[in-house]
Computed example of a mutant assay.
Amino acid sequence: MTVFCDFLLNRVSEPRLQAPAPDRETLDRAFACAARAPDHALLRPWRYLVVEGEGLEALGDLFASTCPNNSDERQIEKLRKSPLRAPMVIVAIASPTAHPKVPEVEQIMSAAAGVSFLELALQDAGYGVMWRTGSVAYHSVVRSGLGLAEGESVVAFLYTGTVSSEKPPVPRPEVSDFVQRWPG
């Protein structure tokens, strides 16, 4: 096995994150890796927002604003505090454009592949990362509050920081559980 394959086989999502977050140089290098995602016709159908500091509180307020007026206060507070689980949240946005040979779904998958590359680059630099979405990722209030244009969508809220405590190992499926030969 190569060092790269070993790295992939040991990759985990880390939910317990603290400061420091990646510095500008590390982040720029990780975004450069994200831009290497497969991209049919070189449309670059993605963009990112980096949220830190007071921006995390504003993001929490935006999340909380998605709750109906009769919502449980605990649910509202949970949403309000959720971005504070990391010192940095990177909002990954799929930004597809009309193209005769590249369907929108391919462009969204390209954006998602970029998030995976970004996640791996940050983990390679020694940071923990947790890819999150949830109902807020698809809510019109959040899309509007983040300044998404018509047709854009949130692919991920990438919570990023230094791992504060590692989580227990997660069982992984056997390859034979999800791979078949065709025709069989």
Rank of each mutant, 00 (worst) to 15 (best):
Q18R: 11
A156G: 09
Q123H: 04
Y127M: 09
L42F: 06
A35P: 06
H99E: 05
F63C: 03
K78M: 11
G114Q: 07
G55S: 07
S153M: 07
L56T: 13
P15F: 04
V163N: 13
L8S: 02
A41I: 01
R172F: 00
I76S: 03
E166H: 13
V154P: 12
S140I: 03
P38C: 08
A98V: 12
L49Y: 07
R16T: 02
Q107H: 12
M1K: 01
R143A: 09
D124K: 11
E73Q: 15
A41P: 04
H139A: 07
A64P: 10
E77D: 14
A19F: 02
V175M: 11
L43N: 05
S116K: 04
D23V: 08
S65L: 06
W182S: 12
R80G: 05
V105C: 14
Y127F: 15
V170C: 02
L122M: 00
S82C: 08
L43P: 05
S176M: 03
V50S: 13
I76E: 04
W131P: 01
G60T: 03
M109H: 13
C33M: 08
Y138A: 03
E106W: 01
D28Y: 00
T162S: 15
F63A: 10
A21P: 08
A121L: 10
L79R: 15
A112E: 06
T160F: 02
R24H: 06
L158I: 08
A121G: 01
A41E: 09
R143L: 14
F4Y: 11
L43W: 05
Y138W: 04
R143F: 00
G60W: 03
A111C: 12
R85W: 02
P15V: 10
G134N: 12
S164C: 04
